[in-house]
């Protein structure tokens, strides 16, 4: 018996035992999807938030439009637009040599999730940066720091601590939202579970999947609490 069959074996569930391996490899896909897109989205969001606050007018309105658009529409719709909609222009993608990317549901999902979470994270970071008192910036400038240096060494580190909790929430939201990837033929945890249900008609398999998601979310929540405690240990309020 392989390791992934044990949870099903121990709980005495035949379906969970039969589809355990598929579900755990699905869990890994979920993990990859979320880890890659949240990380890339974060990198993108820092740039977006800074450009939104300190960039030229036109950049500010473009970024505003971007965040409104992606925060105002469902992720499922965005995913379908990318996977089916962009896939429609196959000849164009083949010409520019990007067809390998838009052909794969996994890459499409990563792409969609990245631009979606970047919009949300950019708003979180913008709010966090904005709530740092102006005096911090002025103080840094008065000490002779360059604009970029004050941003990087004074403003961003403080904003990160403020943004930590909402960013953690965004991570959890993405884990849950990543379940829609199963609707573009991707066998993430949700996809594997749907397959198991379609073949066995045993509803309990959905409950086991729910339990796995719940444990995953709970672990992240706890880790995040510890992280926050550690990062704010120098602050007076704790």
């Amino acid at each position: 018996m392989r390791w992934c069959e044990y949870p099903g074996y121990l709980t005495g569930s035949e379906v969970f035992q039969n589809y355990g391996c598929r579900m755990f490899s699905g869990l890994w896909i979920t993990f990859e999807l979320v880890a890659i897109s949240v990380t890339l989205g974060f990198a993108l969001a820092i740039g977006l938030a800074i450009a939104r606050l300190y960039g030229p007018r036109w950049a500010q309105s473009v970024i505003n439009g971007y965040t409104t658009f992606f925060r105002g529409t469902p992720l499922l719709c965005q995913l379908f637009l990318v996977y089916y909609g962009l896939g429609q222009f196959r000849l164009f993608w083949q010409d520019v040599g990007l067809w390998w990317f838009f052909r794969e549901p996994f890459y499409c999902a990563v792409f969609t999730f990245t631009i979606n979470t970047a919009a949300y994270q950019a708003e979180i970071l913008r709010g966090a940066i904005q709530s740092i008192p102006r005096g911090q910036f002025e103080g840094a400038l008065a000490l002779g720091l360059h604009r970029w240096a004050s941003l990087r060494h004074v403003i961003i580190p403080q904003a990160m601590i403020l943004g930590l909790r909402p960013l953690g929430n965004e991570l959890i939201v993405m884990i849950k939202a990543s379940a829609v990837a199963s609707l573009v033929t991707l066998f993430d945890l949700m996809g594997a579970t749907r397959l198991a249900f379609a073949r066995s008609f045993d509803l309990s398999i959905y409950l086991y999947a729910a339990l796995i998601y719940l444990v995953l979310v709970e672990i992240i929540r706890r880790v995040w609490d510890r992280l926050e405690l550690r990062l704010t240990r120098h602050m007076a309020l704790r």
Binding site: I175, A179, L203, A210, Y213, L214
Partner: peptide, 22 residues
């Protein structure tokens, strides 16, 4: 709240749809 905030909405939807049905 812990359960329904932690489980993906899509999964909740399936469980309730098929669960109530059964």
């Amino acid at each position: 709240t812990t359960v329904f905030r932690g489980v993906p909405e899509l999964l909740t939807l399936y469980i309730i749809y098929f669960g109530i049905q059964i």
